[in-house]
Design a binder for these strands. Structure first.
Lengths: 349, 349
DNA sequence: TTGAAAGCGTTACCAT
DNA sequence: ATGGTAACGCTTTCAA
């Protein structure tokens, strides 16, 4: 008698032999219930589980069928970075919720070339969510040659579904509000800003010309709102950091608040940066919002929990994630979407 | 002339035919540089990339070789939950950093049975990190029958490398400190507490007997410290929530602070809970630490940023993640490890 | 240094 | 309703 503890390698072939049926029948039991009698199917499933055969080998199966049941989430950067950004995390949470529900797997993929050197990992997923333009844009070509459903988030790709949020509108309203609240100098703390302006970058990298649309849109909106209020944000009041991390935020905020004349308002392109600015301001005993007004971006949960509560531009990151997942699972049902943003006026400005 | 834009499906066979070499040679060009001349190899690699052949198909390759180059991170719960828990995120960040560096892929896997129904997803990864005991323990069996390297984190499995932190010690020091600071009643706000005690659970689930070692160890330590100080934490001052989320923390904290006599100290099993408790206390105008002392657990970055700063038991989540990754990539070099925890006395207690 | 061919575990077609 | 079998794309042994 064969016992499950024995554990020779189990394959359709071996279990078929043991059960005295053909491999086709075993396969059908797992994949096409309609192809065999209910009774037989049940017997097979039971015995298989006893034997320690839990289902077809995924590699073999997908070699044969050409599908894997995994959705690739192509990130803009390496993985570790995304676990650092509250906004990205919320987005991923949304994606995960939907993918969980649909019982498909999610493969996080770094947006950097070196991971794909002489491997074609891009062949693994059946469908793709591109969360921001990958740092190395050539990756996109490789994905496109696969002819699989693609949803782009926070940027656009010709001929593919796109999911965006109204960055311009949100940033515009934020800036307008800020300029109404203060007549002093206003600084910008941005992320990966385009090099159309010469600015106070935090790193000595050459500012990158790769698709930075989100930040550029926001900066554009800030400047437009400034102009409409008869103001201007000069280049030396614009900071840019390559990564949306707390420590970068602290560093930049210190520089900003050391500038003479000291800004009386800061437009931050993330809540994390805004919170960091608040932190620095507090340590410098600068009172909020009296002496300094700060507006964030994203509307992460933390922005609400902080004291004083952060005025910020809310974007529905969680829903964005859910929606991206739904779109990629069911591309036929959707058109490209632009989600609204909303200025949440709270205590910091 | 064949152009890369043409895009018939590229396989070793087709490119070999086009280049006029054998499939074995193409394969060797990608996998075993020593098997052919440098010149030939370079030519092949170049032409392939021109042709749009970026490397061997992963499914076919791993069917043949039996390896995939992916590390599975088995989570205790569904994916979405883990993106909700700051401590889990930090751990994942650490894992991601190392895995990024080693250029191996990471597959997040939910710890729930229903995902594996009639699929053997567990066959995909080459190695496993089990982050906490999966909710459905049967999954462990399936992983074990694969005979692949396994590292368990925050729990133990016979015959496998384990990575733990000193929960008992940390909790003990925290409780000792708290009992020295206040003579009033002390409440516990725990996570998935064992059912050895009857307690104020936040959900009406039957308290689960699955491996809850971490929380139990902490509770044990709290009680021991209490006893040593001539105190006791009665069952009706112990709350337990099934999920470490902000909203659960708020809900529990409200109940706790409505209890008569009102606790003058709360031992929280996560920083998120502690921060939530601080939030509720503030809204009730309870002064910290004068009227209420709160201690958290984990030492997440937020605990330091908050005002008042949170007294908490630090555990090196980021390093834990890095170490877990290193261990699983190189099991031979390691023995099971217990990482220290440290009581960080700050402002809240 | 290169080539021919077997086989990894599965599924889907076609027969029965 | 069930079974036989070719083919998915690759790597690796063996022979040349």
């Amino acid at each position: 008698m064969r016992k499950s503890t024995e554990h020779r390698k189990m394959t359709v072939k071996t279990v078929a032999a043991i059960l005295g049926v053909s491999t086709a029948t075993v396969s059908n039991a797992f994949n096409r219930p309609d192809q065999l009698s209910v009774k037989l199917r049940e017997r097979i499933l039971n015995e298989c589980s006893l034997l320690g055969y839990y289902g077809p080998n995924p590699a073999a199966r997908s070699l044969r069928t050409g599908a894997t049941g995994v959705v690739g989430i192509m990130l803009a950067e390496h993985l570790a970075y995304n676990f650092t950004d509250p906004c990205a995390i919320e987005f991923l949470q949304g994606v995960a919720e939907e993918l969980d529900a649909a019982q498909v797997n999610m493969l996080l993929m770094p947006g950097r070339q070196e991971f794909y050197k002489e491997k074609s990992l891009e062949a693994i997923p059946d469908r793709y969510i591109l969360y921001g333009p990958p740092r190395d844009l050539e990756i996109i070509n490789r994905i496109e040659t696969q002819r699989k459903p693609i949803v782009t988030v926070d940027f656009n790709l010709p001929d593919h579904l796109a999911l965006n949020v109204d960055n311009y509108g949100g940033a515009y309203r934020a800036a307008k509000h800020l300029f109404e609240q203060t007549s002093g100098p206003v600084a910008v703390l941005g992320i990966r800003l385009c090099d159309s302006v010469k600015l106070q970058t935090m790193e000595n990298q050459q500012t990158n010309s790769r698709s930075l649309s989100v930040s550029c849109q926001r900066l554009d909106a800030y400047q437009t709102a400034a102009a409409e209020t008869g103001r201007l944000i000069p280049d030396n009041y614009i900071w840019s950091s390559d990564e949306n991390t707390w420590s970068n935020g602290i560093k930049a905020a210190k520089e900003i608040l050391a500038t003479k004349p000291r800004p009386t308002g800061i437009l931050c392109m993330s809540d994390q940066f805004a919170l960091a600015a608040l932190h620095v301001a507090r340590s410098m005993k600068i009172s909020i919002p009296e002496e300094l007004k700060i507006i964030g971006f994203d509307g992460t949960p933390e922005s609400k929990r902080h004291h004083p509560e952060l005025t910020t531009v809310y974007q529905p990151s969680l829903d964005k994630g859910k929606l991206a997942a739904q779109m990629v699972l069911n591309p036929g049902n959707y058109k490209s979407i632009m989600l609204p943003t909303e200025l949440k006026i709270r205590e910091s400005a």
